[in-house]
């Protein structure tokens, strides 16, 4: 391995390479929704234990990233977006990454149990297993609906945060789970509209690869129309006040408008964009803000509402 330009064939990873295995950008999102679940829950958790609970959520998500990179190292090597990751570029061995991931996963679950309770630890373990086995190993390479079901894996953190405080589950965290679950498909399908070449090369049946761009645009629109009622459900069902409900409704209307723009983008007969997917890129960026708005509103509502 001479990926580092060392003539002696020695490959030395940096601390940054090990950090990259944890997919830090995904972890940020997971930590945020986990915090929201924790802060919105009734009751009090000592700040040290709350910090530990969120740390465990972050480390568990990072462990999923490391195991995912171990399993997907073959397709990562052929996709431009992922070819420079530590395993395909030879800076970290596949076995090392797997061991690192398993150790972090086990440590995060045990520490969660030690610091909070068995329910939170159990949900964390289920979420790790779901992401690794159900999404990465089973669905991702087999079905264009991979993102739809796999989205559940990223939806667990609010449940875990809630359970860390209360030791149980209630309807509000279930709705938080449903929001992230329904939000994931339009978010990733928007991304896949302009990155589908990579997925095609790697043989991953993302929707634009298997069903085409036009069908993907319709899927984004339909899932957005399903998402928005779910986002306002906590307000409609009286679980949160207008402090959450009004921003959620406005942010949802904006999401629908952006999805409509993706559907009506200038395109050829196959539905391929003639504008370099500018509306899809806008929707992808906005969807991140959308989730941030919703979960910030949950937190504010819990303290003020």
């Amino acid at each position: 391995m001479s990926s580092l330009g060392l003539s002696g064939g020695v490959s030395e990873s940096t601390a940054g390479d090990w950090l990259a295995l944890l997919k830090p950008r995904v972890v940020v999102l997971v930590v945020f929704t986990g915090w929201a679940g924790l802060l919105a829950a009734p009751g009090h958790l000592h700040p040290v234990l709350a910090f530990t609970a969120v740390l465990c959520i972050a480390v568990g998500a990072g462990a999923c990233g490391a195991i995912n990179m171990w399993y997907d190292r073959d397709i990562d090597a052929v996709m431009r977006r992922t070819a420079r990751r530590p395993i395909p570029s030879g800076r970290i061995g596949a076995g090392e990454a797997l061991g690192f991931g398993i150790a972090l996963a086990a440590a995060s679950v045990l520490l969660m149990w030690l610091a909070t309770n068995v329910v939170a630890a159990l949900i964390l373990a289920i979420s790790i297993g779901f992401y690794v086995v159900i999404y990465t190993m089973w669905l991702k390479r087999r079905t264009p609906q991979n993102i739809v079901i796999g989205g559940a894996a990223g939806a667990f953190p609010p449940l875990i945060g809630w359970a860390a405080v209360t030791g149980g589950i209630d309807w509000l965290p279930v709705l938080m789970f449903a929001i992230v679950f329904m939000w994931t498909p339009p978010h990733f399908w928007a991304l896949s509209l302009w990155t589908h070449g990579d997925y095609e090369k790697a043989g991953v049946p993302m929707l634009p690869v298997s069903a085409g761009a036009r069908s993907t645009r319709w899927h984004i629109m339909v899932y957005t129309l399903l998402l928005v009622p779910v986002t306002v459900a906590p307000w409609a069902l009286g679980m949160s006040s207008r402090i959450y409900g009004v921003p959620a409704a406005l942010a949802g209307a904006w999401f629908i408008w952006d999805a409509w723009r993706v559907l009506r983008d200038q395109q050829d007969s196959a539905g391929v964009s003639l504008t370099k997917d500018a509306p899809a890129k806008k929707l992808f960026r906005y969807s991140l803000y959308h989730l941030a708005i919703l979960f910030t509103a949950f937190i504010v509502d819990a303290f003020v509402g």
């Binding site: 060392l6 003539s7 002696g8 064939g9 020695v10």
Partner: peptide, 9 residues
């Protein structure tokens, strides 16, 4: 045998 490293490497 592996090529020896240069001082910079």
């Amino acid at each position: 045998f592996p090529t020896p490293l240069t001082p910079e490497e």
